[in-house]
């Protein structure tokens, strides 16, 4: 039943590294195929399930996350048994830092964690409250503390997920962001066993944020890194998305998508390995194909399935225009 490998991807990697033979790889693949939890490739695809660990198994890569879950699970069980036998039990500090680029699965993992901790009886509700700076910081003295406390209250029994957490420190000394941080720290004490706080954001900015706030980093014992997807993983994600929807790319469309993703990765750091971007491009290309077909002559099965280079180009022109706008907005 149990496979040594957490994903098919890992099997291919072990074969390529020379740690297993092709025959061993095929055996492992067969085992994996008989346990359906491992077939999905796209870790952003979040199919509702009542078993958080199954959800987690569907994500590719993220070995560190999976290992962590195993540790937490074991720890929670042992502490419960110790409690039952009247031994001293440690309480679990599970506040976390998620570092990584957008589209690498941070929010998805936070949601799965909520569910998981509920199953493990670490949290009693397991919901996730997602907030960013604007939800916490107010307009006058005292307002920030009040708003932050409101969000904390909503998150009791679950996870408070703060995206781009370093933006709280953005305004310097006089900024209300500092007030939000202080309120959060206090809330972590007051609701010690009732809330898990996750701070998320870009790797470099998170590290700097923690350096500036040394008092904070000691309160977050768990730090998880979310690596970018490789180019070939992105292509796989695109192909999987398309084949699930019964579409396929012409060879020139394939080339176009490849060079596009490569280009985006080379020129815009934040877009490298971003699965969400791939998803957006594919979804737009599908809409572009529809626009093209409606205006064209008679349809047939093949025409309905094929995505052309033109469709990809039209879809990505939109994307690069949006990217340019965002870049300009951020500079302002």
């Amino acid at each position: 039943m149990g496979s040594k490998f957490s994903s098919t991807r890992e099997i291919y990697q072990e074969l390529a590294k020379g740690n297993i033979t092709a025959v061993e790889a095929i055996h492992a693949l067969k085992v994996m195929q008989s346990s359906p939890a491992n077939v999905a490739v796209d870790r952003l695809e979040s199919v509702p399930s009542d078993n958080a660990k199954e959800e987690l198994a569907k994500l590719i890569g993220l070995k560190n996350v999976k290992n962590l879950v195993r540790e937490i699970e074991a720890f929670a069980k042992i502490q419960r048994v110790r409690q039952q036998l009247g031994l001293k039990s440690e309480s679990l500090v599970l506040h976390m830092i998620f570092k990584g680029n957008p589209g690498t699965g941070k929010t998805t993992v936070a949601r799965i964690f909520g569910q998981l901790f509920k199953e493990l009886e670490v949290l009693n509700k397991g919901h996730v409250v997602e907030v960013e700076r604007a939800d916490l910081v107010g307009e006058y003295i005292g307002h920030t503390a009040q708003r932050t406390r409101e969000q904390v209250k909503k998150a009791v029994g679950g996870i408070l997920f703060i995206d781009e957490a370093y933006s709280l420190a953005r305004g310097g000394e006089k900024d209300f962001g500092k007030e939000a941080i202080d309120t959060l720290v206090k809330a972590m004490e007051d609701h010690k066993d009732e809330i898990i706080l996750i701070l998320a954001g870009y790797r470099r900015e998170m590290e700097q944020f923690l350096r500036i706030n040394p008092g904070l980093s000691s309160r977050f014992p768990i730090i998880l890194d979310f690596p970018d997807y490789s180019l070939s993983e992105l292509i796989q994600i695109a192909e999987l998305m398309l084949s699930q929807r019964e579409y396929s790319l012409t060879s020139s469309a394939q080339n176009c998508l490849f060079s596009l993703l490569k280009n985006l990765g080379d020129n815009y750091d934040e877009n490298r390995g971003n699965a969400r971007l791939v998803r957006n491009i594919i979804e737009r290309a599908i809409r572009q194909q529809a626009v093209r077909l409606v205006a064209s002559g008679p349809l047939n099965r093949e025409k309905l399935q094929v995505i052309t280079e033109g469709d990809i180009k039209a879809a990505t022109e939109e994307t690069s225009a949006q990217m340019f706008n965002r870049w300009q907005a951020e500079r302002r």
Binding site: T8, I11, Y12, L15, A16, G18, I26
Partner: peptide
């Protein structure tokens, strides 16, 4: 390593 990576690609 090239041959191994190629075999992995085939299995994939």
């Amino acid at each position: 390593p090239v041959v191994r990576a190629a075999m992995a690609q085939t299995l994939e």
